[in-house]
């Protein structure tokens, strides 16, 4: 894992080169399906037979997790949900969970955000309202309830700081200075800030330094957080990049049908993952 003090963004050749750098056993912070997911790297992780990964959904997981779970890459997940949205249940996740073949740490969305925000600030925990009385609190290994030190008789829940080994996502642009532009997708910045290393695929390379541009800068994640970037045109497919291309709903529906059986899932891998695909 990279040293947090010496992050100089490296420019890698492609998604497979990123997959080579993500070690077996790593914990990976991932965005939801409606935020750009580095699907090209997910497919490359399946091709390189990654094993024992821990996936952290920020705050939920979708198609990428279902594919990685189905392909045997995943040991454990922490997430608020795994869903294919309108395409319904995530079939390989559901099958693995019902067989007891996957360790699942159930969370709720803002507790994941809060745990990552604690890491952004370099503090060991951060409090959040609500949640008390949910069975999530009983089962989660890292949550504790304390009395509000500023007000007596006021129990409040603490999220332990979450530190993913790797942040992994897709962006519209990367520039020559190693910055990436993600627009309004703030959870990507949160994941990048909180993780020990950060890998980003991008649609297009921009000349120069986007931080010099007052319009672009607020949508950027600065290179200080970025370990490496690699080009992956249409790299979020079959998911989308807001403002560029939408989610390929028909493909996700087809995936949901195929992945309902182990054989159908293997057929999906053969067709769309194990051989290079023109998206």
């Amino acid at each position: 894992m990279s040293d947090l003090r010496s992050n100089e963004t490296r420019f890698l050749e492609d998604a497979d080169a990123i997959a080579q750098e993500i070690p077996d056993g790593a914990s990976i912070g991932l965005p939801p399906d409606y935020s750009p997911v580095a699907m090209a790297v997910v497919r490359a992780l399946v091709r390189r037979k990654a094993r024992q990964l821990k996936l952290i959904g920020v705050p939920v997981l979708g198609l990428c997790a279902d594919i990685l779970i189905g392909a045997g890459c995943v040991r454990e997940i922490e997430t608020s949900a795994v869903t294919l949205g309108e395409a319904g249940l995530a079939p390989r996740f559901t099958a693995a969970a019902e067989k007891g073949a996957l360790r699942i740490i159930d969370a709720t969305c803002p507790m994941i955000h809060t745990g990552l925000q604690a890491t952004e600030k370099g503090v060991p925990f951060m409090p959040l309202r609500g949640v008390l009385g949910s069975d999530l609190v009983r089962h989660h290994p890292d949550w504790k309830t304390i009395d509000n030190p500023y007000s007596e008789g006021d129990p409040i829940l603490l999220a332990k700081a979450i530190v993913p080994d790797v942040a992994l996502f897709h962006a519209r642009w990367a520039d020559e200075a190693g910055n990436v532009w993600v627009g309004r997708r703030g959870e990507l910045a949160t994941i990048a800030h909180a993780s020990k290393s950060c890998y980003v695929t991008y649609e297009e390379r921009q000349a120069g330094d986007m931080l010099e541009d007052e319009i672009l800068a607020p949508g950027c994640i600065g290179s200080v957080y970025i370990s490496a970037v690699a080009p992956a045109p249409r790299g979020a497919w079959p998911l989308g990049v807001p403002g560029m291309y939408g989610i390929d709903d028909a493909h996700v529906q087809a995936y949901a049908r195929m992945a309902n059986t182990a054989a159908g899932f293997q057929q999906y891998l053969d067709e769309f993952v194990l051989k290079p695909v023109a998206a």
Binding site: V82, L89, A90, M111, G130
Partner: peptide
């Protein structure tokens, strides 16, 4: 309950444990 019942697994709790309070 958005998590599991009678051996069946559901997607998960999403933000419910917070939003229901707030």
């Amino acid at each position: 309950n958005l998590v599991a019942a009678e051996g069946k697994r559901f997607p998960g709790s999403f933000g419910s444990a917070f939003m229901y309070f707030t």
